[in-house]
Amino acid sequence: MAETGYGKLIKDGLWSNNQALVALLGLCPLLAVTNTAVNGLGLGLATTLVLVLSNTTVSLIRNLVREEVRLPIFVLVIASFVTAVELAMNAFFHDLYKILGIFIPLIVTNCAIIGRAEAFASKNSLPRALTDGLAMGLGFTLALFTLGALRELLGMGTLFSQADLMFGEGARGLTLEMGEAYHGMLLAILPPGAFLGLGLLIALKNLLDGRRPALKRGADARAEATGPGEG
């Protein structure tokens, strides 16, 4: 049962099955809005909210929905939530909304959301679907935020610029600057920079993952050498 526990769900969402870095889903918003850390965080959180809402709903209705029409129904559910979230952001985070603009409605086309609805939420209980939605969403947010921070830092020499749009005036001081001498690497801001950055992040993740089995193998080998392990 350890394989299906909540810990596993969270680890899958944040790392092992990260929708952006492993499943490579939702690349359209991922590549388009990650020019600053704040943009990445904003769209990531909006996506997480939609993912939690849609996973919850799909899980609740999973015994009601007929096989033949399940996909249109999932699409309807997701589209309704995205539209509602878009309206809410326009009302309560207007400045951020103006920057993220077209990409909020495009959350509908994020394959990660319908992917989780179909592959997980439609087959699992409410608390598990909720956990999965939250973990997958946060994993996606983490990837968006990291890529945004990386591109912003390399491309513009700042970090958390316009944080005030999201967290209010008090967050203006969060903005870090590398100083006047740094003129920015244009490539990082342009669309190709998004692909290169994503490639680097995936490589980094694979590198980190690749080390663990090697360490484990090393430990196993040592255990065998010293005597029978616990198995």
């Binding site: 929905v65 007929r66 029409v69 129904i73 309807l76 559910v77 309704s80």
Partner: peptide, 12 residues
């Protein structure tokens, strides 16, 4: 199936 779909369309 159609009724179910219609129901969800109305709810959405």
């Amino acid at each position: 199936a159609a009724l179910l779909l219609a129901l969800f369309a109305v709810a959405g």
